[in-house]
């Protein structure tokens, strides 16, 4: 298998898994436009074993999708020999480099801020009610931060491939 084919596979995976990840974020954004604190009564009433399995699968899917997106993105930059210039925002590679940095922030936000708090909100990890309410606010802000960050990210990703004249 030649590297050009691997590069194409990475691009394909990058798009598919980005849709899985960010699509999930957008669905949450549309479903919950405003913050509502965690409500034990309604949340625990609706909770069933089947729902728990579904939530685990859903959250695992987009969390691991983010890793595929990040690795394939970095892989494509490496294959082209652009990685160092992109990450140091050097010259024309600063455009895709800004996208790469925003994407990296989004992935770190998801894994290091959102997920540890979300586990408690969803009851995957036991926590007292007060803590779950506090975590629901942090989770909401972290999730919407990723929504906000995805807007410039997509701008730079598209511009890196098709709109470099915008920067000249």
């Amino acid at each position: 298998m030649d590297m050009a084919f691997v590069d194409h596979l990475m691009r394909w995976f990058h798009l598919i898994f980005a849709l899985v990840w960010v699509g999930h974020n957008y669905a949450s954004f549309v479903q919950h436009p405003r913050y509502k604190p965690f409500n034990e009564e309604t949340s625990e009433q609706a909770r069933t074993a089947a729902l728990e399995v579904r939530m685990q699968r859903e959250h695992g899917t987009f969390r691991y999708a983010s890793i595929v997106v990040w690795c394939s993105g970095m892989g494509m930059l490496w294959y082209r020999g652009w990685l160092a210039d992109a990450l140091t925002l050097n010259g024309a590679h600063a455009v895709i480099g800004m996208g790469a940095w925003i994407g990296t922030l989004m992935m770190l936000n998801l894994w290091l801020i959102m997920w540890p708090h979300q586990k408690k909100v969803l009851g995957f990890e036991p926590a007292p009610l007060e803590e779950r309410v506090r975590c629901s606010r942090i989770t909401f802000l972290a999730s919407r931060t990723n929504t906000i960050l995805s807007i410039p990210l997509l701008f730079f990703m598209a511009a890196g491939g098709h709109g470099l004249q915008l920067f000249m």
Binding site: F29, R34, L141, T147, F167
Partner: peptide, 30 residues
Amino acid sequence: MKLPHDSMQGTLLAGTALTLVLYLVVRTLV
């Protein structure tokens, strides 16, 4: 404290404003 995240419009506006600011930053680097 109310943050842009607290409304749909605020989220979209923050994303658009951030895009514009970062665009101007990156333009100086290219």
